[in-house]
Nucleic acid binder design. Sequence first.
DNA 1: CGGCTGACTCTGG
DNA 2: TCCAGAGCCAGCC
Length: 110
Amino acid sequence: MQMNGKKSEKRPLYERIYSIVRQIPPGRVASYGQIARIVGGCTPRMVGYAMSALRSGSDVPWQRVINSQGKISVHGDGIGTSLQRQLLEEEGVKFNASGRVDWDEVGWLV
DNA sequence: CGGCTGACTCTGG
DNA sequence: TCCAGAGCCAGCC
């Protein structure tokens, strides 16, 4: 496979971010900063903006992407937030009383 | 081509 | 531990 090149940079930054999120295994979560670091050359905000452009119906598990605090950010009316938390719990992700998750349990690449 | 929007992170108090 | 302000860039109309 001629995939180990850097042709990824040929794709839009957004699509590149989606590729990273798709690599997140079930029961695991990653932070925006982590994704941005992996993509390289992009800021955590770019990741968040890319997620907002996704919405539901995408092949990207945006639900596994949370902020560095281990919490879920509030989007739009907050409906997506509740959905995200529910989806993560369905995968086995546990939330703290403060609504945070333990990176030691569900941290991706940890 | 110009302007607007947006799901973050960091630091200080 | 919680709150507030500032910095940042790409995509879309």
